[in-house]
Design a protein around this nucleic acid. Structure first.
Lengths: 190, 190
DNA sequence: GTCTATAAAGCGATAGAC
DNA sequence: GTCTATCGCTTTATAGAC
């Protein structure tokens, strides 16, 4: 297995980084060739639908990673506190403590969402649902669990925006600490 | 004053909407001419620096709106609870209950931030600082006030991402309700 | 202050040789 | 499976008439 970047699966993470940095519209094919070291011919061989297909592949890759590394553990790991702790570890790792942006989040904000509506919708829906199930297992009632899960997932996305706006990973780390406490905390008073 | 869209100040809000929908890279000059009804000649007359200058003008416009409608009231309106209430009303109005995205947030996520680093940074810094000052006035100690303000501002940004991802304003409204409660609530247990 | 015409560069995508 | 050459189109930006 001594080869440079040749396989489709090796290219996808590089595409992911570029889309995260530039957004979908801002990522040009010429820069994609630079980053991947692959000519346009090769790229269109691996991704017959061009840029659109590349973004789809990256979205699927991200969804798969979160399913196995975050959502499934949230549903299955016991005790629930341990499942939540793992989620925050995975999140901190995946987003490089706020230095890396959420690909689905950046796609969600502009009109790229309209092209990938189902991928964008299901990513956040699955995350929220999985986290809500964990909170339920830890004794929170169904309604409150979904509400709190939504709060935490939104909190993570907002922390990514804020941390990048300040160019300061500490903003993200502080947010994670707060959210962690909120995930395991008791009900705040009405 | 019977005229159509002629003045620079009339064009800026239209530019804002377009940048919010498409992001900076995705907003093309040809679509800008369509939206504004102004030819390229006129646009370059009003904005000699082209697209870059248009985005700067929109950012300045947004910053000015928030300064007078949100930040100043946060610092000055008494009692603090009333100041916070006004912020949430203004936020709900400005973001059309989650149907409209945050321009600064969308710029913050991709490499557009690098071109407008100071504008992006100061927008969120000013918001956080103003809200923290309100919380201090209501009796929260300095450290916790800044932390809680950061939490709320991030919460709003994350709610915009999540609401758009689900194409559901209710997600945003729910988030605002939670954040409102958190802003006026007592300290959650450690 | 607005327009049209135009320039030069870059875009995504395809063809076809190897 | 990779490359280069090329297509047709769009991009930002400018020039110059009115």
């Amino acid at each position: 297995m001594v080869r440079k970047v040749l396989e489709r699966s090796d290219v996808i993470p590089l595409l992911g980084e570029l889309f995260r940095e530039r957004g979908f519209a801002g990522a040009s094919l010429s820069e994609i060739t630079k980053r991947t070291g692959l000519g346009k011919g090769s790229l269109y061989h691996h991704f017959p639908d061009g840029k659109e297909g590349m973004a789809k592949a990256v979205l699927d890759d991200v969804a798969a990673w979160f399913e196995t590394e975050v959502f499934a553990p949230l549903r299955e790991v016991d005790p629930p506190d341990e499942a939540v702790a793992r989620m925050f570890e995975a999140v901190d790792r995946f987003f490089h403590s706020g230095r890396r942006v959420c690909l689905v989040g950046i796609f969600a904000l502009d009109d790229t969402r309209d092209h990938y509506a189902e991928e964008v919708r299901s990513y956040f829906a699955a995350w929220t649902r999985a986290l809500a199930s964990t909170l339920e297992r830890s004794g929170v009632d169904t309604g409150r669990a979904h509400d709190r899960a939504e709060d935490i997932v939104a909190g993570i996305q907002g922390a990514l925006v804020l941390a990048r706006s300040q160019d300061d990973p500490e903003v993200f780390m502080r947010a994670l600490r707060r959210l962690r406490a909120r995930a395991s905390g008791v009900e705040p008073p009405a």
